[in-house]
Simulated assay, not measured.
Amino acid sequence: MHRSSGRATPAFSLALFVLMLGCILWLTALGAGLYGSLEASRTANEQTRAALGSLVARVRSGDAAGAVRLDSGPEGDMLVLTEQESGYEFRIYLADGWLMEQFCAADAATDPEAAQPLAPAQEFTAQWASPALLRLTVDGNTADAALRSAGGGAA
């Protein structure tokens, strides 16, 4: 009769070691994938928030009676900030998955080819929340710009 000494065989020990190593590698890969997706989401959110901050600053810097208005752009809302002394205006709108900014003469056509991209975006809306409060939304993130000029030509 063969007696077992109570010790694991080398094959069992090796199988257990390989199983543990496989679990560790799988968990490491899972963690790296989750970190990568969270980092991409955070970066996109930061870009959107930076674009919104830039828009609010631009609106506040151009805050004058009749200088801020809303219009229709290539893919929805268009924010128009007029420089009354020069006859030029900034147009901010969505085109081809980008939030675009175009600086042009007031009578020029809206042309995404002549605009500068501000940030990647799938959604952009601009609306008057009240006569003195402009609400801007980019990809679900919202910022409000309070205007001293009481709307500057709310449409």
Rank of each mutant, 00 (worst) to 15 (best):
H2N: 15
R3M: 07
R3I: 13
R3L: 08
S5R: 13
G6H: 10
G6F: 15
G6W: 15
R7N: 02
A8Q: 13
A11H: 09
L14P: 03
A15G: 02
V18Y: 10
M20L: 13
W26T: 07
A29M: 14
A32L: 06
G33P: 04
G33R: 13
L34F: 12
Y35P: 06
Y35W: 11
G36D: 06
E39S: 06
A40F: 05
S41N: 13
S41K: 09
R42E: 09
Q47L: 12
Q47F: 02
V56W: 07
S61Y: 15
D63C: 08
A67G: 05
V68E: 14
D71A: 14
G73T: 03
G73Q: 06
E75K: 15
E75G: 03
E75R: 14
G76F: 14
L81C: 14
T82C: 14
Q84F: 10
S86R: 12
G87C: 11
L94F: 07
A95C: 01
A95W: 04
D96R: 10
G97E: 01
L99D: 00
Q102C: 02
C104G: 11
A105D: 15
D107S: 15
D107P: 08
D107V: 06
A109C: 00
T110A: 08
E113C: 00
E113N: 02
P117F: 09
L118A: 14
Q122F: 05
R135L: 08
R135C: 02
D139Y: 05
G140Q: 01
T142M: 11
L147M: 03
R148F: 07
S149M: 10
A150T: 12
G152I: 08
A154I: 11
